[in-house]
Every structure is written in C-alpha cells, then in structure tokens.
Simulated assay, not measured.
Amino acid sequence: MEDSQSEQQRMIRRHNREKKELQARIQSMKNSVPKSDKNKRKQLLLDVARLEAEMEQKHQQELEKFQEGLPDNSSVASVTEDLAKMDLENQPPRFSRSQRRRERRAALERERQERIAEGETEQLASYRHDEEEKLRTILGAKNLEMKNITADGQCMYRAIQDQLVFSVTVESLRKRTADYMRKHIDEFLPFFCDTETGNAYSRDDFLGYCDDIVGNLSWGGLLELRALSHVLQTPIEVIQAESPALVFGVEYTKRPLTLVHTRYSCSLGEHYNSVKPLEAGAVGGAAPRLF
C-alpha cells in the first residue's frame, strides 16, 4: 500500500511540474505574439487550448491506468485536482465512467471560466463576432435569424421544443430520446466512445449514459439528435458557422426542424439555439413560415 501511495504521489508531483512547464511555455508563446495581430492571437488561443487539452488527457489516462492496476481492496481513491493535499486513507471509491464523464465536463466548465477570468475575453469576443457574422449570413440566405435559447444545460431539447407545432415538455423529450436509444442500442453503440481518447464504451456504459439523459440532465449532442429525428419522424438540421450543416433523419419528408450550434456565442461554451423567420423588412426579404 505504501509503495502504491508513494508512486501515486510521485506521479502527482510530476504532473504538477509538467503543468508548470507548460504554463511557462504558454507564457512565452503569448509574449512572442503582438497583441495588435488579431489573426495570430486567434491561432494562439487555439494552440493553447489544444496543448492544455492534450496534457489534461495524458494525465487523466495515466491516473486511470494507475488506478486500474490497484487491488480491489485498495483504499487509494480516484485522483482529483487537490489529491496531493488529501488523506489518501480516507478517499471515496473510484469513480465510474459515467461519473468521470460528469467530472470532466465540470472540469471543462471551470477551465472555460478561468480562461475568461485570465483575460482571454478579447480573443473570445473576436471569435464570437466572426461566428455570429457567418451564422447571420447562412441564416439570412434561408430567410431565418437566430432565436436565443436559455443556456441551462438543456438548450438542445429546448430548441427542439421551441420549433414543434405541438406542446411537449423537455422532460418528455428526454425520456422519449432515452427510451429510443435503449431500444436501438446496436444502432448507437458503434458511435458511443470517449470523446477524449476515442476508446469504445461497453453496453453497460451506454445504458448508464441513457439513464443520465433522464436522471442527470446531461447535455444533448449528435446521438440524441439522431434519436430525436426518429422519435419525431422529422429531419433535424443543425447549422454551424465553420462546417456544412448536419441533417439527421433525411429519410423523413416533413419540413426540417432547424437548430444553430455555436461554439463561442455562449460564455459557457458550446450551445444550441433555435431559429425564427426574419422580421418583415429585414435584410433577406419576407421570410417563409417555419412550419
């Protein structure tokens, strides 16, 4: 047990050292790019985010691999950010994969807020402006404009709800989505993997993911959109600024529901909005009805 704890502590110290070295490298990169060069500052922000994500992924994989090698009765628990300061003898059991997914999402949220607090608002504002301009052009060609949806972790479902011609609750949409995915597990399982490592998850992991859709109000994404297109028997189009539109449920003939996926327009990160017809007299001419 003492050997395991010592090895774990050495790993934590090495991770902390590597993080400090990375921050020094990032600071050097920032100093080398003039603040007046907006294009290079944009690329710098992307490079910094990539380097931080790669290191976080590497450290997470090392910690998980270390824990997997511990005996079942080991009292050494899963490592958190302040593990070095905690009493290793009193740690909770290792997190399940679904718990780790939630922890990683929470960590990403904290990192976004920290980056904003550290003075990255100028670059983010530039990204946001460019994204909104591109989306305005794409939507304008369709005689549409963006309709803001509350950023509460349920934006995808609320954007779908906003465009349906019949009344339905977000809770119902979540339940019907989870039920469909459970009944068609073989259709979804090949696409269900760890977004950070690309490793496939098991059937039990997938069923736990479906439980989270209903019980933990998890974010909606591509798997859920695919399921909802079948549940509603309606195509769902997702418009993005930097990529071609995604369409789910192309086999259905109803008028598509249209969502807008943004990366920078919401301070919390990726977000889904709804759309509405352009107001009369707006650029782009009279807008058709959505339904």
Rank of each mutant, 00 (worst) to 15 (best):
D3S: 03
Q8I: 00
R10I: 00
M11D: 05
M11Y: 02
K20N: 14
N31I: 08
N31P: 10
P34I: 03
D37N: 15
K38A: 11
N39F: 08
N39I: 07
L45V: 01
V48I: 15
M55D: 01
K58M: 05
K58N: 05
H59G: 01
Q60W: 04
Q61P: 03
K65I: 08
K65L: 04
F66G: 00
F66K: 00
F66C: 00
E68C: 03
L70Q: 00
D72L: 10
V79I: 14
T80H: 05
E81H: 07
L83E: 15
L83V: 05
K85F: 07
M86V: 07
L88D: 05
R97Y: 07
S98N: 14
Q99P: 06
R101I: 08
R101Q: 15
R102P: 01
G119K: 15
E120H: 12
T121L: 08
Y127V: 01
T137D: 08
T137F: 05
G140R: 10
A141K: 13
M146L: 15
K147F: 06
K147L: 12
C155V: 04
I160F: 05
D162P: 01
Q163H: 06
V165D: 11
R174D: 00
Y180P: 03
Y180N: 01
H184Y: 03
H184P: 02
F191Q: 05
D194P: 13
D194Y: 05
Y201S: 11
S202C: 12
R203N: 07
R203M: 07
D205F: 02
F206I: 13
C210R: 02
D211Y: 05
D212L: 09
N216G: 09
G220C: 14
G220T: 03
T234N: 14
L246A: 14
E251D: 15
Y252R: 13
K254T: 15
L257Q: 15
T258W: 14
V260Q: 11
G269W: 14
V275L: 13
P277F: 10
